[in-house]
């Protein structure tokens, strides 16, 4: 899993029918402090995240292992909204 920040939404009308009803969000990868890294991901929202949310994103075949994304042609899903990250020294 990676940390990401939701930076926008994606609207699409012509898509695979398994994607109908799923919210697509544009996310930017960040580190554990919230500093932006260089890559962007388009992820399906499974936790009602909104723009600006600090989220946990799961990618690859594991992304299809939620109730929302089962059998859909996707490879990234938002699995949690992060409240806080605590690091030991």
């Amino acid at each position: 899993m990676i940390f990401a920040k939701v930076i926008g939404t994606i609207v699409s009308s012509q898509k695979d029918e398994n994607l109908n009803g799923k919210k697509l969000l544009l996310c930017k990868e960040v580190d554990h402090n919230g500093n932006p890294l260089n890559s962007y991901h388009v992820a399906v929202d499974a936790v009602q995240a909104g723009e600006g949310s600090f989220v946990l994103l799961s990618y690859g075949s594991s992304a299809r292992m939620t109730e929302t994304t089962k059998n859909s042609p996707i490879d990234a899903v938002i699995i949690a909204i992060i409240d806080n990250v605590q690091m030991t020294n």
Binding site: V47, Q48, M65, T66, A80, I82, D83, V85, T88
Partner: peptide
Amino acid sequence: VVGVVWSTKKVREINWCRMYI
């Protein structure tokens, strides 16, 4: 294990599960 990720809103499949860094 160097850190903990706290999150109250998670997908149902991992709702009870702790996340670490």
